[in-house]
Amino acid sequence: METKVKPFRIKASENNIPKPINDLSKMDIRLETKNLTVKYGSVYGVRDVSIPFRNKTVTALIGPSGCGKTTYLRALNRMHDLTREAKVEGAVLLENKNIYDADINPVIIRRKVGMVFQKPTPFPTMSIYDNVVAGLKLVGIRNKGILDEVCEKALNQAALFDEVKDRLKSPAVSLSGGQQQRLSIARALAVEPEVLLMDEPTSSLDPQATLRIEELIHTLKKDITIIIITHNMQQAARVSDNTAFFYVGDLIEVGETKSLFTNPKKKQTEDYITGRFG
């Protein structure tokens, strides 16, 4: 297991040096927020946040509890639509189209922008198999061959297939916590999202399971754009290309992970990553 940690280190080989975030060509940006503000009633969740997310990169959102990371993340696939009090201002551009435009159906957005939550959320009455293909059945795919194929692929991507291949029909709740979380990831991946949002996906997992999820993020990066919230700064450093630091609803600093951790531009960032608060 230990040897597998290696790939996370940001190596200075040619193809994975993240480009500096401020000279991006427009083509490269998959998702972008412009002056995004989320208010709960009159209280600000996040204020005026603009971040571009490049295609096939991992961006970590860090910051102390209550700093607005989750609020920000949930704005990216319109989960705030479900909270009566929450009000979103500004724009979230998915491929240069604002997902908050009146003619956009949030259901379609959520199929393109998948989400994995802090706690594993398998549907308890469904089998492992049915959990994975739940999203596919929503879009009307009933063909058993396709479902089987996608189920195996998604479980493989989530590094769970080998553990469950003999009991795909058993209840999802029979899995361990770490397996359930990987199942939740497989379920999100099965619908082939373009962007995957992860809200502290490893916070309820043991180190072993955490490691597997981190490996997984590294593999997934080849195909999709990932935005991950984490409280663990080592994790942010291990898995992400870019990091954004939030503090009380404001975006303090965003940049290439390596430079943000080694050479933060703002005092608050430095204080946080060196453990002086938060």
Binding site: N77, M79, L82, V107, I108, I109, R110, R111, G114, M115, F117, T121, F123, A134, G135, L138, V139, S184, R187, A188, V191
Partner: peptide, 8 residues
């Protein structure tokens, strides 16, 4: 929310 997030 898990179901919403799948695009339900």
């Amino acid at each position: 929310e898990a179901s919403w997030a799948l695009g339900s």
